[in-house]
């Protein structure tokens, strides 16, 4: 279980990193490396080069500007957990991040790395879907903004071009009427969940609006459930109907942990619990 041989490059600027990425089509970026290193040790991945972007200051930092919370791609999970800006403006992330792995992994794993890796069982992709985030990428021809809805394209696949690097995540700041919920069912603390739900929306009285339900560990990628969400909006909200609509929104898969049917049943339990915790009429 030793990694295969590869070359190591550590560019000193983002532009250099993008150039190197273009020059080495079989290279991989490494940020925190918490997923990549395991797959290298297992020889599941055999890149020609690793391009280490872990020290690029341009990708760091958490800021709020004009109603947008910007999280640098290299923000480590431990930083996300401790950030007062994130707690104030995207409390869903503060809640969710506790479920990501363990302290010794959160110290290295990065926000952007988790999104770019696009593991269907990871928490953060579902969170940025729920938060209606915009992901900012930089390539040879400059910056490109990709909505979270468009970003996750398949199993470990994203809309990033081969020579693009995810640099930041823009999230609309939570408003006073914002509500959120997060629950996952993991066998052991820090494990990937069997099913998980990150939800965000707005509440007026006991009614929800702009609800987004981001699911993970259900199907091949982090997925929104728009039909179920629609069934929970406004005065006609019905949890029962939303629960039914999940069958149209989600395509749960079979794996070692659970069958697709069990997953669907568990997804309905989570939906009920998350919505109930929001204290709305449904």
């Amino acid at each position: 279980m030793k990694a295969p041989a590869f070359d190591y490059l550590r560019p000193s600027s983002l532009d250099d990193a993008i150039k190197l990425l273009g020059a080495h089509p079989d290279a991989k970026l490494i940020a925190g490396g918490q997923s990549l290193l395991a797959s290298l040790n297992l020889r599941l991945s055999q890149p020609s080069h690793l391009i280490d972007i872990g020290r690029l200051a341009e990708l760091r930092g958490i800021s709020v500007n004009g109603g947008v919370l910007r999280i640098g791609a290299l923000t480590r999970h431990a930083e996300t957990m401790a950030s007062p800006e994130i707690a104030a403006h995207a409390p869903l992330l503060t809640q969710a991040i506790h479920h990501v792995a363990h302290a010794a992994i959160r110290s290295r794993g990065t926000f952007g790395g988790s999104l770019a890796n696009a593991d269907p069982a990871a928490e953060l992709p579902a969170c940025v879907l729920a938060l209606n985030a915009t992901l900012v990428a930089r390539g040879p021809s400059g910056e490109r903004r990709i909505t979270a809805d468009d970003f996750f394209t398949g199993l470990f696949e994203t809309a990033l071009a081969p020579d693009e690097i995810l640099i930041a995540i823009d999230i609309p700041v939570a408003t006073p009427d914002g509500v959120h919920g997060f629950q996952e069912l993991a066998r052991r603390s820090g494990d990937y969940a069997i099913v998980g739900l990150a939800a965000a929306g707005k509440r007026s009285g006991t009614h929800l609006s702009e609800l987004r339900l981001g699911w993970f560990s259900v199907g091949t990628k982090a997925t929104l459930a728009p039909k179920a969400a629609a069934a929970l909006i406004g005065p006609a909200a019905s949890l029962a109907r939303a629960s039914e609509m999940l069958a149209e929104d989600l395509e749960p898969h079979d794996d070692l942990q659970a069958s697709g049917a069990t997953r669907m049943s568990l997804a309905r339990v989570l939906l009920k619990r998350v919505i109930t915790a929001m204290e709305v009429a449904a």
Binding site: L185, R187, A258, S259, A261, T262, S265
Partner: peptide
């Protein structure tokens, strides 16, 4: 006694 075993027994699935 996995969740799936328990749920199958409870016939929730």
């Amino acid at each position: 006694l996995t969740p799936e075993v328990v749920l199958n027994a409870l016939r929730h699935v």
